[in-house]
Amino acid sequence: MTLYVLCFALFLVGLYGILTKRDLVKIILSSGIMGYACNMMLVLFGYRREASYPILEKGREAAAMVDPLPQAMVLTAIVIELGIISLLAALAVRLFQKYRTYDITKIRRLSG
């Protein structure tokens, strides 16, 4: 249970970052943190008490294993997140070139 609460706390940290930080880079990091929290949650859901890693090895009985599927999902989610974050980083740099600032509250040409 503690782990779930901590996961949720991490998620809130990310959300807090997005809501309060002005720096583009910090916002990007916050969104990354949110993603990690979700990924951890996903891995936690696949966890089974007293179980081993889900790999078949020579000379090892197929004992109780944790669920491997969430791990595969997390791997995919990480890749996606990587894509999003690199895109965000690229956009942040280009935004700086155009607006001469990293402050998101000053980047608001689109309004109304």
Partner: peptide, 17 residues
């Protein structure tokens, strides 16, 4: 209504929240 859409990202995320 337009004044609620002033280009503030944080406000937009608050909408979602």
């Amino acid at each position: 209504l337009q004044r609620a859409h002033a280009g503030q990202l944080q406000v937009y995320v608050l909408f979602i929240l």
